[in-house]
């Protein structure tokens, strides 16, 4: 038997703790500012969704389903499913969850698409980003949930922060792949007509990478939705919180109602966003 030598140890834990302490003391204002921005965006979306009455919201989703997915039967199914959520008594909580998901997707795209573009333009950056993205997707989310809590306090903001970390990798990866797989000859053609690299990016690469980017957006949205239960553990109200409470009180039926509501939201969001990737 050979044990790993005790003398060889890297005190990464101490280092990270040190860094955390330093950040908390010195960058408090910065984190407060970020928290303020995120909170305001969430509240704006929340107010918007809660402002729209259910009898307008449901037909609106039906219309979107008919317009983008393209089948009347699908539109009707969407509307029936939303009515089901309402009948569970979860309308308001669903809207809160939806606003949380949409805000995190909004920030994920805002940060993720430019990063994907940059990554596609530099092999070096790609090789640096890849392991980081792997880490973001596989690191157990509680590991960064606690620091998020320390920076932003309880509530929606740290939940949002954790959700972004978990949900952003697909849109970055698929933007990168989408741009990298644009036909080289088409890019050459654009260059041959005197297009600058900016024009190539906006007139050729991004439009041609659009289907791939849309799949990325779809994946990011789904992953954001799957984080709502975990987010509720640090105080983000919504369907996730309901699931958590039901589990604590051993109310199996309630748990299923909230769970099914999440699934319904997931299906509707997935079908609508996925249909974008297939459009020309």
């Amino acid at each position: 038997m050979s044990n790993f030598p005790n003398s060889f140890s890297i005190p990464l834990d101490k280092w990270i703790d040190g860094i955390m302490e330093w950040l908390l003391i010195n960058l408090e204002v910065f984190f407060d500012f970020i928290g303020f921005v995120i909170l305001n965006v969430i509240v704006t979306f929340e107010n918007l969704f809660l402002f729209i009455p259910w009898f307008i919201f449901i037909p609106l989703v039906g219309f979107l389903g008919w317009k983008f997915v393209g089948k009347k039967s699908i539109a009707i199914t969407f509307m029936l499913m939303l009515l089901l959520i309402g009948s569970f008594g979860y309308w308001e909580l669903s809207m809160k969850t939806l606003s949380l998901v949409i805000t995190s997707v909004f920030f994920s795209l805002l940060i993720g698409i430019p990063h994907g573009v940059l990554m596609a333009r530099s092999d070096k950056l790609e090789s640096i980003m890849k392991p980081i993205l792997d880490g973001m997707q596989t690191m157990p989310s509680f590991v960064y949930l606690i620091p998020a809590l320390m920076f932003f306090g309880m509530g929606k903001v740290p939940a949002m922060f954790a959700t972004i970390i978990y949900a952003i990798p697909p849109v970055i990866r698929l933007t990168n792949i989408g741009i990298r797989t644009v036909d080289k000859e088409v890019i050459e053609a654009a260059l041959a007509y005197g297009a600058s690299s900016k024009q190539v990016l906006f007139d050729v690469q991004i439009p041609l990478a659009k289907p791939s980017i849309m799949v990325g957006i779809n994946q990011t949205t789904m992953m954001a939705l799957s984080m709502v239960v975990i987010g509720s553990m640090i105080g983000a109200k919504g369907l996730g919180m309901e699931v958590l409470l039901a589990i604590n009180r051993i109310e199996v039926g309630k748990g299923f109602e909230a769970g099914i509501s999440i699934v319904i939201l997931a299906i509707i969001i997935d079908r609508i966003t996925f249909s974008f990737s297939k459009k020309r």
Partner: peptide, 21 residues
């Protein structure tokens, strides 16, 4: 060179190099 290309060249490619969108 970008400016020069605009007035001087027209290029045709083997696989056409058209923009599908």
């Amino acid at each position: 060179i970008l400016e020069f290309r605009k007035d001087t060249f027209g290029m045709v490619f083997q696989h056409y190099g058209l923009l599908p969108h």
